[in-house]
Amino acid sequence: MDIKHRLATLLFPVLGTVVAAPAMAQLAASQRCTVQSGPQTAALVELYSSEGCSSCPPADQRLNALRKEAGAASLVVPLALHVTYWDQIGWADPLAQAQFDARQAELLRHQPRHVAYTPQFFVGGTELRGWDTQLPAAIRRINATAATVNIGLSATPGPGGKLLLEANASAPDAQTNGQLYVAISESAIVSKVLRGENRGATLQHDAAVRLWLGPVALAQGRAQLRREVKLPASWRPEQLQVVAFVQRSDSSAILQAVSTASCAKGVL
Rank of each mutant, 00 (worst) to 15 (best):
R6D: 07
L7T: 08
L7K: 12
A8H: 06
A8L: 15
T9H: 03
L10K: 09
L10N: 06
L10H: 01
L11V: 13
L11Q: 00
F12R: 09
F12E: 07
F12L: 15
V14T: 06
V14H: 03
L15C: 05
L15P: 02
L15M: 09
G16P: 07
G16D: 03
V18K: 06
V18I: 15
V19Y: 03
V19R: 01
V19F: 10
A20C: 09
A21Y: 14
A21S: 10
P22I: 12
P22W: 06
A23P: 02
A25K: 09
A25L: 15
Q26I: 07
Q26M: 14
A29D: 14
S30E: 14
Q31L: 08
R32F: 03
R32T: 15
C33D: 07
C33T: 04
T34A: 14
V35A: 07
Q36V: 13
Q36N: 09
S37C: 09
S37V: 08
S37Q: 04
G38T: 14
P39C: 03
P39Q: 12
Q40L: 12
Q40H: 13
T41H: 01
T41R: 15
A43F: 01
L44V: 00
L44Q: 00
L44K: 00
V45I: 12
V45G: 02
E46Q: 15
L47Y: 01
Y48A: 09
Y48P: 06
S49K: 05
S49G: 11
S49A: 11
S50H: 06
S50K: 07
G52D: 11
G52I: 11
C53L: 13
C53D: 14
